[in-house]
Design a binder for these strands. Structure first.
Length: 883
RNA sequence: GCAUGGGUAGCCCAACCGGAAGGAGGCACCUGCCUUAGAAGCAGGACAGUGUGGGUUCGAAUCCCACCCCAUGCACCA
C-alpha cells in the first residue's frame, strides 16, 4: 500500500485551490428566494479532537452543500464553536491552563482537522460563543427577557452536581446504573447529583408550552417523528380538573388536587401530599408529637434524595397524618397521607383512587386502605381488589353520575364543581421553567446588578457586554471564581448610582449560547445589532438542520423557544428556527471485553490479537458488544488519523457508505478498504482511459452500439439515484454503490468495445463510443463530487475539464438514456418462476402474453391445465394462473 | 412499562407505496491471470431465502395480526 499514498497529496493540492478561489455566499439583503438555501450542522464543543460524532454530520452536510451549489443554489453553510463550558474550566483547575487558552488552542486544532476533511464551510462567518462580540447579544436577549418577565429569579430546589459544583437543569440529569446501583448523575461527568436550595435565574419556557406543541404539528414530516414525539412527551401537556377538598386540621384549609380522572372522584379513599406541599408544615405543627416527629423525619429523608431519584425508587411509602380531608362531591371524609410517590407536580396533592390508579392501588395495598370501584368496564369483568382498572368506562357507585361514560362524567363533574366554586378545568405541563444560572466562570455573565437600594437592576444596553474578566484564580473550591473577583463584582448601580452595588456572579447555561447562534450566522460580524433584519431574513429560518439525536429535546426545544421569543419581540418574522431536521445516527464501535484469570477489562482489537496469539484470551472468555465509542471501552477510532492514512475522500466515502445516515452504524477499520479501492480504481481508470477521449471531434449522428447504450443507462441511472437521494432520504450509501458500479461498467465497456489509442478524427468509427465513454466519465466525476470532492477534481481535470468540477452544473438525467431497448422478463406459472422472455421494452400487453405462453418451459408447466388468468405487470412480470 | 427505529449470505448493507433474493455495492473467503515470489491489481466464483407463528393475495422480505430479540430515548407527572 505504499505507492497509493498519493491521495493525500492531490487532496492538499485541491484544498489549496479551493481556498484560493473561495467565494462567500451572497450577502444579499433581498428576501429569501427558492434558490437560497441555509444548511446547518450543529456546531461543536471545541474538545480539541474531531471524532466520528462530528465527522458524520459534517461529511453529510458537506456533501449536501456541494450538491446544492452544483444544482444552482446560493448556499449558506456556516460553522462555529459552542465554546463556553465546563471542560475548559476543569482543565484550568487541573492543568492550570486558562479556559480561554484551552478553548482557543482546541479550536485551532479542530479547525485544521475540519479543513483536512475538505469541508466547504463558510468560515468567514465563524462564531465563537465565548467571544464578547457574540455573548454581548446573548446578554442583550437576556435583558429583553427580563423586561418581558420571561427571565426571573426565584429560590429553587436545584440539581447540584457534586463534581462540577454547579446547578444542572432537569434535562441534564441522567439515571445511571453502576455496579447494580441506580443513581442520578450529571449528564457530563456522571457524578452523583443532589438537591440544593439556591437563588437562581429562570426562563419562563412554560409560558411557551402550548406554542412549542403547536409548532411541532406545523413542522409535520419535516421533522423525524421520533424527535417530535420526544418533545411532545417532554412538554407533557395534560388536561384535567383541579378539585378543592377541605382539609380538616385545627381549622379548615382548602386543599386542591389535580386529576385527569375527575370521573373517579367517588372512588377517592385517601388524599396524598407531596413532602414539599405547603400544607405539610402546618400539619406537622398541628399533629400529635409522635406523628409530627415521624412526619418530620420522613419529609427530610425524602427531600434528601433528588426528585428524579425519588421517581426511580421502588417502594411507595407514606405517613398517615391523622387529619382528614372532605371530598366535595360526596362529603366523605378520607385520611390525608404524606407520600413519597407524590411529586410537586400540578398542585402537589392527589386524590387517591386505588380502584382506578395503579400507583394509588399499590399504596392502598401497602397501607391496607379501602379500594372502591366506581368505573365499570364495558365488556369485561374486573376485580378491583386485584389490580386497578385504569381504562375509561362507565360510572358506578357514583350517585347521580352513574351510567355516564368517563368522558361525559369528567365534563359533568368539572361543570358541577365549577358551579359550586369547588373546582375548575386546568391544563398542566411536565415541562418546567428553565434554570439557567451556573455558579461557574467559563460562561456568559448574567448582565444584572444587585443594588442594596434598588434590588435587581439590569445593566443598560449601552454598557454591554459585561465582559468576563481574564484575571481570575481557579481553585477547586466549588465556588465560582467570579465570586472571589472583587473588581468584577464591584460596580455602580445603573439606576441610583450607589457605588456599593454588586454584579451578579452567575453565568448562563451553555444551552443559552446555542439557542440562537443559527441567527447570528446570517450577519455574524455586525457590531451594532444582533443581526440585520434583512440579512437575517435572506437566509433564516434554516432549511436543513443536521445533528445528532442526543439533542432531540434539550437544544432543539430551547432553540425553538428562543426563536419564538425573538419573534414575539418583533425581531424576526418566523417562529420556528429549523424547517427540516435531519437526525443522523450514531457511529458506534465494537468493544471487546476479556474476562479470565489474567484480566477483567476492555481491550482494543489489536491487543486482542496479541492476547489470542499468546494464549491469554480464549474465544469463550471474550464478550463483544456494540457500544458508543469511548476511551474507557477502547472501541474508538480516530477519523483524523484515518484521513492521514487513507485520505479525506476515502474516509468521507466510508462514513457515508456505512449505511443510511439516519441509522446507527458500527465502525470497522477494515470497512475503509472498499471505498479506498473504489477511489483508486476510479482514479486509475480515468487516467488510463483519458487518452481515448482526448480532443474528440464533434459527436457523430451515428447510432450508439447496444453496449454504449448500456453504459449511458448506467451513467444516467447514477444521476437519477443521486438526485433522488439528495432530495429525499439521504441514503447516500446506495448512491456510492451505484458509483462503484459505474466504474466497473466503464471498464467493461472499454474492454468490450476494444477502444485503443487516440481518436483518429471525425471519421473514426469508434467516435460515437468514445463520446459515450467521455460522457460516462464526466458524469461520474460530477455525480461523485459531493462525496469525494478531491478525486472528482482530479479526474475531472484528467479528462480535460477546465477549472473546477464545482463550476460545472449538476448533471441532468436524459430520460431516453434510462430506457433500455430490450428487457428480460420473468414468467411465472402459479407464482413460481418457470422461464424468462426477452422483448422490446416498449412491448404491449398482448405481445408480452403471447411471448410468455410461447416459452417452452412455461408450456411444460401449463400443459394439460386450463389457463384461468394471466397477470401482466408491464416491465416487471407475467404470471400465468393455470389449474 | 411507554415511544421510535431495526432483525435479509460469515459480516456491513440493498430491494420494503407487493412482482425473478441471476442480491446494487462493499469487507472477508475461493479460483484463474499478472508477478521470481508475496502484496497490490485485473477477471471470475461460492455463500442466505429474509427473527418466529398466523392471515390477505395469482404472487409477500415488502401489507395485516400476534409474539421474540436488539438499539436508542423516556419512565410513579395523578
Amino acid at each position: 500500500m505504499t505507492e497509493e499514498r498519493r491521495f493525500p497529496d492531490y487532496e492538499a493540492k485541491w484544498q489549496k485551490f479551493w481556498a484560493s478561489r473561495k467565494q462567500p455566499p451572497s450577502e444579499a439583503t433581498t428576501p429569501k428566494s427558492d434558490r437560497d438555501f441555509y444548511i446547518l450542522s450543529m456546531f461543536p464543543y471545541p474538545s480539541g479532537k474531531l471524532h466520528f460524532g462530528h465527522a458524520l454530520p459534517y461529511t453529510l452536510t458537506d456533501a449536501m452543500a456541494r450538491f446544492l451549489r452544483m444544482s444552482g443554489y446560493n448556499v449558506l453553510n456556516p460553522t462555529g464553536w459552542d465554546a463556553f463550558g465546563l471542560p475548559a474550566e476543569n482543565a484550568a483547575i487541573e492543568k492550570k491552563i486558562h479556559p480561554a487558552k484551552f478553548t482557543y488552542d482546541n479550536i485551532e486544532q479542530m479547525r485544521a482537522q475540519k479543513h483536512a476533511f475538505g469541508y466547504s464551510f463558510d468560515w468567514e462567518r465563524e462564531v465563537f460563543t465565548c467571544k464578547p462580540d457574540y455573548y454581548k447579544w446573548t446578554q442583550w436577549i437576556f435583558l429583553r427577557m427580563l423586561e418581558k418577565g420571561v427571565a426571573y429569579r426565584k429560590k429553587a430546589r436545584v440539581n447540584w452536581c457534586t463534581q462540577c459544583h454547579t446547578v444542572l437543569a432537569n434535562e441534564q440529569v441522567e439515571t445511571i446504573v453502576k455496579n447494580g446501583e441506580e443513581y442520578q448523575a450529571c449528564f457530563r461527568c456522571e457524578s452523583p447529583v443532589v438537591p440544593r436550595e439556591i437563588d437562581a435565574w429562570f426562563l419562563r419556557i412554560t409560558d411557551y408550552a402550548d406554542r412549542l406543541l403547536q409548532g411541532l404539528d406545523r413542522l409535520g414530516d419535516k421533522w423525524p417523528e421520533k424527535v417530535a414525539t420526544q418533545q411532545r412527551f417532554w412538554i407533557g401537556r395534560s388536561e384535567g380538573v383541579e378539585i378543592d377538598f377541605t382539609a380538616r386540621l385545627k381549622s379548615e384549609h382548602k386543599l386542591t388536587v389535580f386529576t385527569t380522572r375527575a370521573d373517579t372522584t367517588f372512588g377517592v379513599t385517601f388524599v396524598a401530599l407531596a413532602p414539599e406541599h405547603p400544607l405539610v408544615e402546618q400539619i406537622i405543627a398541628q399533629a400529635d408529637a409522635k406523628t409530627a416527629k415521624r412526619l418530620k423525619e420522613f419529609v427530610t429523608e425524602v427531600l434528601m434524595t433528588s426528585e428524579a431519584d425519588r421517581a426511580g425508587g421502588e417502594d411507595k411509602e407514606g405517613i398517615n397524618t391523622g387529619f382528614k380531608a372532605v371530598n366535595p362531591l360526596n362529603g366523605q371524609e378520607v385520611p390525608i397521607f404524606v407520600a413519597n410517590y407524590v411529586l410537586m407536580y400540578g398542585t402537589g396533592a392527589v386524590m387517591a383512587v386505588p380502584g382506578h390508579d395503579e400507583r394509588d392501588h399499590e399504596f392502598a395495598k401497602e397501607y391496607r386502605l379501602p379500594i372502591k370501584q366506581v368505573i365499570r368496564a364495558d365488556d369485561t369483568e374486573i376485580n378491583i381488589q386485584e389490580a386497578a382498572f385504569t381504562e375509561p368506562g362507565t360510572l358506578v357507585n357514583s350517585d347521580k353520575y352513574d351510567g355516564l361514560t368517563t368522558e361525559a362524567a369528567i365534563r359533568q363533574i368539572a361543570a358541577d364543581l365549577k358551579a359550586q366554586g369547588k373546582g375548575c378545568v386546568k391544563v398542566n405541563y411536565k415541562l418546567r421553567d428553565w434554570g439557567i444560572s451556573r455558579q461557574r466562570y467559563w460562561g456568559c455573565p448574567i448582565p444584572v446588578v444587585h443594588c442594596p437600594s434598588c434590588d435587581i437592576v439590569p445593566v443598560p444596553d449601552n454598557e454591554l457586554p459585561v465582559v468576563l474578566p481574564d484575571d481570575v484564580d481557579f481553585l477547586p473550591t466549588g465556588q465560582s471564581p467570579l465570586t472571589l473577583h472583587k473588581d468584577f463584582q464591584k460596580t455602580r448601580c445603573p439606576k441610583c448610582g450607589r457605588q456599593d452595588a454588586r454584579r451578579d456572579t452567575d453565568t448562563m447555561d451553555t444551552f443559552v449560547d446555542s439557542s440562537w447562534y443559527f441567527l447570528r450566522y446570517t450577519d455574524s460580524r455586525n457590531a451594532e445589532q444582533i443581526f440585520d433584519r434583512a440579512k437575517c431574513h435572506h437566509w433564516a429560518p434554516v432549511d436543513l438542520y443536521i445533528g445528532g439525536r442526543e439533542h432531540a429535546i434539550l437544544h432543539l426545544i430551547y432553540a425553538r423557544f428562543y426563536t419564538k421569543f425573538l419573534h414575539d419581540i418583533g425581531l424576526i418574522d418566523f417562529d420556528e428556527p429549523f424547517n427540516r431536521l435531519y437526525a443522523h445516527g450514531l457511529i458506534q464501535g465494537e468493544s471487546i471485553k476479556v474476562v479470565n484469570e489474567h484480566m477483567n477489562r476492555y481491550v482494543s482489537a489489536d491487543e486482542l490479537t496479541q492476547l489470542k496469539r499468546s494464549g491469554k484470551a480464549k474465544d469463550d472468555e471474550i464478550t463483544r458488544r456494540i457500544e458508543k465509542m469511548s476511551k474507557s471501552k477502547k472501541n474508538g477510532a480516530d477519523p483524523t488519523e484515518l484521513v492521514a492514512q487513507y485520505g479525506a475522500d476515502a474516509l468521507r466515502l466510508t462514513i457515508l457508505f456505512l449505511g443510511p445516515a439516519d441509522a446507527d452504524s458500527v465502525w470497522d477499520n477494515h470497512g475503509i478498504k472498499g471505498p479506498y479501492n473504489f477511489l483508486r480504481r476510479w482514479h486509475d481508470s480515468v487516467l488510463q482511459f483519458a487518452p481515448l477521449v482526448e480532443d474528440l471531434p464533434a459527436k457523430p449522428d451515428a447510432a450508439l452500439s447496444p453496449v454504449a447504450k448500456t453504459l449511458r443507462h448506467s451513467a444516467h441511472t447514477l444521476v437519477e439515484r443521486a438526485t433522488g437521494e439528495f432530495n429525499g432520504r439521504l441514503s447516500l450509501n446506495t448512491v456510492i454503490a451505484k458509483g462503484m458500479e459505474l466504474v466497473s461498467d466503464i471498464r467493461a465497456f472499454v474492454t468490450a468495445e476494444k477502444l485503443e489509442g487516440p481518436c483518429k478524427g471525425a471519421s473514426d468509427p469508434t467516435l460515437a463510443n468514445r463520446h459515450a465513454l467521455l460522457e460516462a466519465m464526466d458524469i461520474l466525476s460530477r455525480a461523485m463530487a459531493p462525496f469525494a470532492p478531491h478525486t472528482a477534481e482530479e479526474t475531472h481535470e484528467a479528462i480535460g475539464g477546465k477549472g473546477s468540477v464545482f463550476d460545472r452544473p449538476w448533471p441532468k438525467v436524459d430520460p431516453e438514456a434510462l430506457v433500455l431497448d430490450e428487457i428480460e422478463l420473468p414468467v411465472q406459472v402459479n407464482g413460481k418462476v418457470r422461464g424468462t422472455i426477452k422483448l422490446p421494452s416498449q412491448a404491449d400487453k398482448a405481445t408480452m402474453e403471447k411471448l410468455a405462453l410461447e416459452n417452452a418451459n412455461v408450456q411444460k408447466f401449463v400443459e394439460g391445465k386450463a389457463i384461468q388468468k394471466l397477470i401482466v405487470v408491464p416491465g416487471r412480470i407475467i404470471n400465468v394462473v393455470a389449474k
